[in-house]
């Protein structure tokens, strides 16, 4: 049962999972970070209120957030095929993962920035800072520790999503768990993949917490 081939399979699965998680986190932030910033900046009480933009982005984010990932996964199949030419494997899974995680990231970024004391932003305005300067030199640097903590939450959430993608041949540890553990009734394989997933979550969470603590200058 636990042959050399099996451990090789687990090794490949782990790497695929990491590839999916890190890849989709990256793309989710490339989209979600600016959207989150725009949501804060264009808010009625934001630094440059733009009502219509704020409402439209808000609605799009809410719609995507309210679709369960398993549905989004199936619904996105034609889109994924159009982009990559295939719907199987780890890379193909990144497309629905990003679609699901990006709006989540946007909300996380929004909440991190809103944690900043409004007085600091007012102070920057009183010094004649432009909205762009406030975003790049006040909001993002001041929110950095919270952004890092939230990034750890995002990666672990995405890891959870990759499990669902296993059902549609998404690759990674969860595909192994489903193919061996579920379809072939190999409970022990299922258990081992779960242990692997738990360890990965622990590592991501720990890294996030440590970095956030290290860079946060408020607790000296």
């Amino acid at each position: 049962m636990f042959t050399k081939e099996f451990w090789q399979l687990m090794g490949t699965g782990t790497l695929e999972t990491l590839y999916m998680v890190i890849g989709s986190t990256l793309f989710a932030y490339i989209i979600g970070l600016p959207v989150g910033v725009i949501l804060v900046a264009t808010d009625d009480h934001g630094i440059t209120p733009v009502k219509w933009l704020n409402r439209i982005l808000g609605v799009i984010v809410n719609i995507l957030r309210s679709i369960p990932f398993i549905i989004l996964l199936l619904w996105m199949i034609p889109v994924t095929r159009a982009i990559l030419g295939t719907t199987l494997g780890a890379t193909a899974t990144i497309v629905p993962l990003v679609a699901s995680a990006a709006p989540f990231v946007a909300r996380m970024v929004e909440s991190s920035i809103k944690e900043i004391d409004g007085g600091v932003i007012e102070a920057a305005q009183s010094m004649g800072a432009t909205p762009w300067q406030i975003i790049t030199r006040v909001m993002l640097p001041e929110a950095k520790p919270s952004l890092v903590i939230n990034a750890a939450i995002v990666t672990t959430t995405i890891l959870g999503y990759t499990a669902m993608s296993g059902f549609v041949g998404g690759g990674g540890l969860s595909t192994i768990a489903i193919n061996y553990g579920y379809y072939r009734y190999q409970g022990d394989v299922m258990s081992i993949t779960v242990v692997f997933l738990v360890i990965i979550v622990q590592i991501f969470q720990e890294i996030g917490t440590r970095i956030a603590k290290k860079i946060d200058k408020r607790n000296h």
């Binding site: 600091v120 007012e122 102070a123 009183s126 640097p141 200058k217």
Partner: peptide, 16 residues
């Protein structure tokens, strides 16, 4: 505004 400095009750310094 660059010609008008301002200070606040809660200082409003950049904490990071």
């Amino acid at each position: 505004r660059r010609n008008i400095g301002m200070m606040f009750q809660q200082f409003n310094l950049l904490m990071q």
